[in-house]
Every structure is written in C-alpha cells, then in structure tokens.
C-alpha cells in the first residue's frame, strides 16, 4: 500500500514539475512589467529598477527559474508583492474556508446524486428516469454564480433564513455550518447533477451485464442483486468522475466565494490578479495544481477500496 502510494507520487512528480514550469512561464512571459504595475506610471526609473532588483526580476530567466523551483519545492512560495507577507501564510489562512466549502459540496453531491442516479436507473424510461435526467441536465447548466444569486434572492432576501454574506468564525462550528448552507447548495447541486448522471448510466451498464442475469437466474432476490452486484460495480466510474469534477468544483468555488462574499482561494486569486501580485498568483496556481494532483491520487486509492481487482502491489 505504501509502495503503491510512493509509486503514484513518483509518477506525479514529472507532472508537478511541468506544472511548476508552466506556472513560471505564464507569469513571466505574459506582457506587463510587475514592477511598473505595482509602482504605477508615475514611478521613477530608479524606483522601478530598485523594485525589480528586490523581486529578482533583473536576474536571467533561467536563474529565476531555478530559484523558483527550489523555493517552491521547499514549500516556500515567496512573499506577496503587495502585502509583503509570505504567500504560504496568506494561503493557509484562507484554505480552511475553501476546503469546508468543497468538501460540503462534495458530500451534498454524493448524498443527493448517487440515490437519484440509482433511482432513475431502476425506473428506466419511466417518468422518474426522465425527471432525473432533465433536472440533472438543468442542474449542470447553472453557472454557479447564477444559482448562487438566485438562491440569495430566494432564501436570504425573500425568506431571510440564511445569512447572505460573511466570513465564518472558524472556531465557532455553528457559525461555520450556518454560513456554509447556501454556498453548499449552490455548488453541491452542480456536483449532484454530475454524479446523478454518471451513477445512472454506470448503473444501467452494470445491470445489463451477464453476471446480473446469472444472479437473477439463480433466484437471488432483486434487492440483493441491485445492492450487492449492481451498485458495487457501478460505483467505480462514479469515483472517477468525482475525482475529475473536483477540479471543476475547486474552480467554481471562486464564483461561490464572490457571490457569498466568503473568504477563500478564489477571492485571493481575483485580488492577486487585479493587483498584479505575481508571486501570490504563482503560489496560488501551485496550490491549485497540487490539490488536483492529490485528488487524483486519492481517487486512485479509492479505486482500490471499491474494486478488489486493483492491486496495490
């Protein structure tokens, strides 16, 4: 098991390196001198040169690249060009909010999506099936900010049930959960829609397999067939999709955070972009990609728990 994880991490290493390189290039190659941007048009050339030297921008590109890699690998993502605080510190401060939201949405997606998918598959081509298919298609057609704003208008303004906006106190679990409700519905419903569709089609697939017919022919009760034989095999693609869409979920959290005025990585991204905080941007992209690589690894591990054929040898 540990060897398997190590091997997977080893396989992910070149990808991570390539990602870091791309991040470095995106930030450097794209036009716009960060020093000029930070200091503004009125700055004297001396001031700009001084800042460039402080940021290390006057060194040759390959030197900058090597020092960027070395510091990134040691977990040091540099200092924010705007606030001067270490990037990693600022990111770690908001990370719990983003993780709260992502995990809660994922949970909602699974709890809502998997049963709906199974339900639809078992009532193939009947009303329930059509309803689940169309509603789920509608669900994944919602850009998150649209559903977020609609939810705001409906719940927070008309019925005044949940707080509209706010930074949750991380130490107050009640407050944390309360402020999570609306954003989670907005983000989780998209996830639920994806999961319901995948569950339905993979359940249909597995119910049409020969071993299901064999089990039926042996006289195994339908309930047992569905739960023990059908579902177990149907869940595998679902896990893949959950892993795949977690990236989308992380991306979409930007919009949710803006709509509900929550702190989080998304808000930091937008701020870094508008302020041209290049080191912050660099650090954010590294964190995002790192999260996705970790999610892929977890997906692989989950595979092993569901499918005994996948050996962690």
């Amino acid at each position: 098991m540990i060897r398997f994880i190590l091997r997977r991490l080893l396989a992910a290493a070149p990808t991570l390196l390539a990602v870091l390189t791309v991040v470095f290039l995106i930030v450097r190659v794209i036009p716009g001198d960060p020093a000029l941007v930070i200091l503004g048009d009125q700055a004297t050339p001396e001031a700009i040169n001084a800042l460039r030297a402080r940021l290390g921008l006057d060194r040759p590109l390959h030197e900058q690249y090597v020092s960027f890699l070395l510091t990134a690998l040691s977990g040091d993502l540099g200092q924010s060009m705007v606030s001067g605080k270490p990037v990693i510190e600022e990111l770690v401060a908001v990370l719990p909010h983003t993780i709260d939201l992502t995990l809660a949405s994922l949970l909602l997606g699974v709890v809502l999506g998997v049963p709906c998918g199974i339900w639809a598959a078992l009532h193939r081509n009947r009303f329930i099936d059509y309803a689940v298919r169309i509603v789920s298609l509608l669900g994944l057609s919602f850009p998150v900010f649209v559903s977020g704003i609609f939810l705001l208008i409906a719940f927070a303004l008309t019925w005044r049930l949940f707080p509209v906006i706010g930074t949750a106190d991380l130490n107050d679990w009640g407050d944390r959960l309360h402020k999570l409700v609306l954003p989670t519905i907005a983000l989780g419903s998209v996830m639920a829609a994806y999961i319901a569709r995948v569950t339905r089609s993979s359940m249909l697939q597995s119910l049409s397999e020969d071993y299901i017919r064999t089990a039926r022919a042996k006289g195994v009760p339908w309930r047992v067939v569905v739960w023990r034989h059908g579902l177990r095999n149907a869940l595998l693609p679902v896990v893949t999709v959950v892993g795949l869409y977690l990236g989308i979920l992380i991306g979409n959290s930007v919009l949710t955070e803006i709509v509900f005025n929550r702190p989080g990585l998304g808000r930091v991204v937008v701020a870094a972009l508008t302020q041209r905080d290049y080191t912050m941007l660099q650090g954010l992209l590294v964190i995002y990609c790192f999260l996705i690589v970790v999610v892929n690894l977890l997906t692989d591990l989950a595979y092993g728990f569901i499918d005994p054929r996948v050996k962690h040898g």
Binding site: V27, P31, I250, N252, V254, L273, Y288, I292
Partner: peptide, 23 residues
C-alpha cells in the same frame, strides 16, 4: 499527451481567469 495532462491539471476557470487577466 503529457503536455495535455499538464494543461488539464489547471482548473479551467482559473486558467481562463489568469490568461484573461494577464492579457
């Protein structure tokens, strides 16, 4: 395909965001 994987490991909205913001 490795290059495509690298491009895909960025959340697409974030990648779009960064490119538009910088360009």
């Amino acid at each position: 395909m490795q290059a495509m994987d690298v491009l895909m490991s960025f959340p697409s909205l974030i990648l779009g965001l960064v490119i538009v913001a910088l360009l």
